[in-house]
Design a protein around this nucleic acid. Structure first.
Lengths: 143, 143
DNA sequence: CATAAAAAGGATAATAAGGTCTTTTAATCT
DNA sequence: AGATTAAAAGACCTTATTATCCTTTTTATG
């Protein structure tokens, strides 16, 4: 469904956000340990998320990554579109370049439903709400 | 959503099935032309579908590919699982190896809904029904 | 100001996905 | 039987994704 980059990215953002709520900055080595991802690769992904103002990074001693308070209600869709673009929402299920109501592929209307579903879920799910859910149940980001 | 192999495979099967209803065998060069896919690669994919008894192949002059009548009600899910396996249905949205009701990822329940949706669509859509739909509206497999 | 901690950036390596080409096998038609 | 046509099979190549390594830059602190 998502690329590895996007999977790691989502996990990382969720972890960082959770820690930010507890007032902790976290560095890459902690992050990659806690979400079980390759460290250098994760660093690359966080660079992208930093450039796109989804996470904030601070260099130097006691530096690390945070999600600022006013960013807590960004949607998962924003993370996904930074890392994977919008092909999941827009692309044709059968891979046709041109596929819309005017010249639909045989599965066009069936796919629209599923993609809209995914789109709505990602657009309606804020970082904050994910973190809240995590406090309700024992929820893990490793393994 | 699907791999290229799976996209080409689905398009190919749909095209072959449609032609089979009109009593035509079709060869790879026609198929790849009509569904706009790389010929040699499409041949590879059709080999897999042949080995898995989804399409039937006949070698030699006037040979080609067909979908036999009793195969017309196989589901799209069967094609997808031959070409892409079942990770779309089973895999965790965040890429965790272990993720289920016992140790769910933060998005587990949200993803279940979407994957079930996709699963149901593919399991309830037969080749025959796709072809029928294609006769109702002007539907294309190219571009 | 020197040092250490941390992210940023560039270069490269490994693996997987996507795609091509050539040879082999099988069916059909003179 | 021999020529021809078409798929099957396997070897090979290319590109994109995933992943690592190493150097540079930034910055907090003793």
């Amino acid at each position: 469904m998502f690329s590895k980059s996007c999977e790691y990215g989502l996990r990382a953002v969720i972890f960082i956000a959770q820690q930010s709520i507890e007032k902790n900055k976290v560095n890459i080595s902690t992050i990659s340990e806690e979400i079980n991802s390759p460290q250098a690769f994760t660093a690359k992904i966080l660079q992208q998320l930093t450039r796109n103002n989804i996470v904030k990074s601070v260099k130097g001693p006691h530096g690390g990554f945070t999600v600022e308070e006013h960013k807590m209600d960004i949607r998962l869709s924003e993370v996904v579109s930074v890392l994977d673009g919008d092909s999941i929402y827009k692309g044709c299920g059968l891979g046709l370049k041109q596929c819309d109501a005017n010249s639909p592929c045989p599965l066009h209307y069936k796919f629209i439903e599923i993609r809209d579903n995914l789109k709505n879920m990602l657009e309606n799910t804020s970082l904050k709400s994910v973190i809240n859910d995590m406090y309700l149940e024992e929820i893990i980001l490793k393994r």
